[in-house]
């Protein structure tokens, strides 16, 4: 199959997953009731539609960011959390819950985006010093650890058990109870970030030759690292701000896509965005269908699915190196 027909297939699967996400849940809503003036119609417009749109956008952001970062770092184990943007945005979100700022308009979203912005600035400073891929990995690790510790600190000094549990539950990542407002806030950042990331494809291809080879062919590595930091920072930051940290999508999806369309870095960008959307929409639909009073957190489901997959990748890679 050609890459084009695989892309078309993925687009139709994405559409199907989107429709599934609209239909499936504790209450099944058939197409007839989607625009009805009753409880079903209300569930559709107020709950399901925002949730499906966010699932689509977040999945696409994570899949694409993962594919770009794996290409840039030339490391198949990279994922969108590696730059520390997720942890920083999460810390911002947690801080807003701790301070009770979530009631303000744009409270949680604004705090989380501020956290993401701070990490973007730090990473760009690092890139300007000529840090390169290794600098990013180490810098991201420092940012993640720092933000993670500060988050743990806030949980430990939470004023009451309810606040602590609210924080923990938000951190787990979910698409529950998002409104159209959340979408309106997050989508511009996600769209801008994704456009930046989609334009890096050719440069990532040339990086297959290593950094010297890429520079000798006229690639401006500093500019590329700026674009990647900004692209990942804005889009992943916004996705954490509305849905918490959803792990493993960005790690798994590019690997699956490499099997389908080959390993050329630019060829897996679009498929990874689509695949991320499909995986997130289907997983979120499953989350809603799980029996029980409460709802499993999307982040947890992803991690449970993702961890074994990660292990298989690691074992395979070791075999290839051996």
């Amino acid at each position: 199959m050609t890459t084009r027909s695989i892309n078309l297939l993925l687009v139709s699967f994405t559409l199907a997953a989107f429709l599934l996400s609209l239909t499936a849940g504790k209450v099944w809503i058939g197409p007839a009731d989607w625009f009805a003036d009753n409880a079903s119609g209300w569930i559709m417009t107020e709950l399901r539609l925002p949730r499906a749109v966010l699932g689509l956008a977040i999945g696409a952001v994570l899949g694409l960011s993962g594919a770009v970062l794996q290409g840039y770092l030339r490391n198949p184990l990279a994922d969108p959390t590696i730059l520390g943007v997720s942890a920083s945005a999460a810390f911002g979100g947690v801080l807003s819950i701790y301070l009770g700022a979530t009631a303000l308009p744009l409270g949680l979203f604004g705090f989380a985006m501020a956290g993401a912005a701070l990490s973007i600035i730090l990473l760009i400073l690092l890139a300007d010093r000529g840090g390169g891929p290794l600098g990013f990995i180490l810098g991201g690790m420092v940012l993640s650890t720092l933000a993670g510790s500060l988050t743990a600190f806030l949980i430990s000094i939470a004023p009451n058990p309810f606040a602590a549990s609210e924080i923990i539950s938000w951190l787990m990542g979910a698409l529950t109870d998002r409104t159209m407002d959340d979408i309106v806030h997050a989508l511009p950042f996600m769209a801008a970030g994704m456009i930046l990331l989609l334009t890096t494809g050719r440069a990532l291809d040339v990086l297959t030759l290593g950094e010297d080879g890429a520079r000798s062919l006229g690639i401006n590595l500093k500019r590329l690292s700026w674009m990647i930091v900004l692209g990942v920072g804005l889009s992943v930051g916004a996705s954490v701000a509305v849905a918490g940290v959803v792990s493993f999508v960005g790690l798994i999806v590019p690997h699956v896509m490499r099997r389908l369309v080959g390993e050329q870095p630019s060829a897996i960008l679009l498929p990874s965005a689509l695949g991320g959307a499909i995986l997130t929409l289907v997983a979120d639909s499953l989350v809603r269908l799980m029996p029980g009073a409460g709802e499993l957190r999307l982040g947890i489901v992803m991690a449970v699915l993702g961890a074994p997959f990660f292990l298989v990748i690691l074992l395979r890679q070791r075999k290839r190196m051996a």
Partner: peptide, 21 residues
Amino acid sequence: PQSAQTHWAIAAETLVALGRY
């Protein structure tokens, strides 16, 4: 460049095409 490393399993002609960048 010095290292003859190629980071992804891309086809030979795709690699050669990078020279046209």
